[in-house]
Computed example of a mutant assay.
Amino acid sequence: MARPPGHGPSYEVKRQEIIDLAAGLFAKNGYAATGIVEIGEAVGLAKGALYYYIKSKENLLVEIQERVLDPLVNIGNQITDVDTSPAVKLRLLSHALLDMIFKRLDHIWVYEHDYKHLTGENLTQMLKRRHEFEGIVRNILISAMNEGIFLKTDPDLCMLQFLNMHNHTYQWLKTDGRWDAEALSKAYCRTLFTGFAGGAFDFISLETEVSRIQTLGGY
């Protein structure tokens, strides 16, 4: 969201702080059970001052959703354009998605649980954005099937398998160092791709190419 005219850098710093704290409260207590007064107390602002930064409680929910979706859609589009095989693209996308979950765990809780509280145009736009990311995954899977890398099957079901394995990580993830996004991405893709490929897949070549692309593009 663009900064309103006349607001200096400190305005945006405070607004981002409020969004972070709200994400933590929503993740802990639920969006519906968290009131504006509670958010204001957490950030040290009265209700009127809080609305100066956020406009509404629902707008906070929009901001949290966008913090998850916008980067994922953007990097998904970038990965789609990389000159490499569809399997490598999926592995890169897997890492990007898990990296988001590790970095914004509170946001992911809210993203998964509370988007249904959005209303009207906010809900319409958020669902459209979600479908856009799903479409990126589906199109890469279709390319892999068309190239004979994966078995031909229902691409919608494959897309849901891919996203469900990744998206549910937030339910058990502990950032204690046992796993990181890279380790989980390798494990998830090995499991999924072996099934997709009918039991045979060249993972050594895959990981070599992933390393090459990551070095070039920083994915």
Rank of each mutant, 00 (worst) to 15 (best):
T34H: 11
R15P: 00
L206K: 06
V43I: 09
D81P: 00
R67G: 13
A181L: 02
L173A: 07
R212L: 14
A187T: 08
T124C: 02
N139A: 10
K128C: 04
T84I: 08
H107K: 03
A197K: 01
L127Y: 06
D70L: 07
T208W: 00
P5I: 04
L90N: 01
V43Q: 05
V110Q: 09
I18G: 03
A49M: 03
G24L: 06
N29I: 02
K89A: 08
A187Y: 02
G195R: 01
Y11A: 00
A87P: 00
Y52M: 06
T124E: 10
F150N: 00
S185Y: 03
E182A: 06
K128M: 09
A22I: 09
M1A: 10
Y111F: 15
D114Q: 08
T119F: 03
P86W: 01
L21E: 14
Y51G: 03
A144S: 05
M100D: 05
E63M: 15
W109L: 01
L123S: 04
G195H: 10
Q161A: 02
V62G: 07
R138G: 01
N139R: 15
K28I: 04
E147W: 00
L118H: 10
D202V: 01
L98H: 13
E134N: 08
L216E: 14
T169Y: 12
R212D: 12
L151N: 02
L173I: 05
A144N: 13
G35F: 07
F26A: 12
G120H: 06
F26W: 09
W179Q: 03
L69Q: 12
E182R: 11
K174Y: 11
F201H: 02
H166A: 15
T34E: 11
E17D: 08
I142V: 15
T84A: 06
G24M: 05
Y188G: 10
A197T: 00
D70V: 15
A33F: 11
F201D: 01
I213N: 06
Y115K: 07
L118K: 06
E41P: 00
G6T: 08
L72F: 09
N74Q: 13
T208C: 03
I136M: 10
D20H: 04
K103W: 03
P5F: 00
L60G: 01
G135S: 09
I64D: 02
G217F: 15
G199E: 04
Y52P: 03
V82H: 07
H166E: 08
G40I: 06
S56H: 10
H117I: 00
D70W: 02
L45F: 13
N139G: 13
D70F: 13
Y170R: 09
T175D: 14
T153F: 07
A96G: 05
S211T: 12
E147Q: 08
E17L: 11
T169Q: 10
L163K: 07
V43R: 09
P155T: 06
T208V: 04
Q65G: 01
